[in-house]
Amino acid sequence: MKRLLRWESALFVLLVLIAVIGSAATGGLFLTGNSLFHLGLDVGEIALIALPLTLVIVAAEIDLSVASVLGLSSALIGTLWNAGWPLEAILPFVLVVGALCGAFNGFLVTKLGLPSLAVTIGTLALYRGLALVVLGDQAVADFPYSYTQFGTAPIPGTWIPYPMVLFVLLAVVFGLLLHATAFGRAVFAIGANEEAARFSGIRVKRTKLILFTLTGAVSSLAGVVYTLRFVSARADNGTGLELAVVAAVLLGGVSIFGGRGTIFGVILAVLVLGGLRTALILGDTSTEVLTLVTGILLLASVLAPAVTKRLTRGTS
């Protein structure tokens, strides 16, 4: 617990540093409403998916198919829109499909006892493939403005993007779920010692199935946000995004071995990554550098606990 708090303090310091250096380097451009609006939009999908994925990783599982579910969701929106469905029907439908995709991951992991890493690498390809089957290589873009402004415009009178509201709402929900409920206690116990959890009467399989289903549903929701933001439904939307999401969760101090982590830490990590991205873009740096920095931060976050452990052992 203390270790995690220290981790979150470090993230907070990093965040302030980014803001200060970003402002200085861009002549104050960084902390303007407009850049913050774009920051919020930029990390929207990553932030949304990171929430349920935090619970999955705390339970010592992983889901790498999230970006493909996002793509499938986007492709479905395009196809159904072309087929004349109203968006009011399309959106709930794709959320259900996303939940089913997640449930299928969960089914393979819990009922067949397969490792989630292998399962979701498989479904990463499968769901992306389905997306291509559904929509092919076309792009659908003729959505009504009443919907796309949700993804492209701030809430009138503020710099706050709409998806940010969605994120705050879900962050509260997932934060409470993980940290205040019996379900959350079970998730931690499963991640730290699955056998002991089973011996305590915790329904391990059901819990994991729920986590994968939630992750699928939220990934699909992120697909909706993505489609409206770029006003473009494409099968290859969000390709490769899963790495950024996993990076955010791990940078947030969630242990890749399960049993440890907080939603608060992940929120800070999302802001750090978004801040970096905005600072670099404003500073006219190429996106390759951003990928590089993300990679370094990810390695640092995985290495840091091991290094501190070695240091403290050395002094004892």
């Binding site: 205040a180 409920t181 931690f188 730290a192 010692n193 002991a196």
Partner: peptide
Amino acid sequence: QQGLVLDASIERNAALASLNRLSRLGFV
């Protein structure tokens, strides 16, 4: 391996088999 979650606290371990009884509307 089976009786305890070693990294978890004494209170979390002691309560692990009683979570339902200790919570209202799912909240512990």
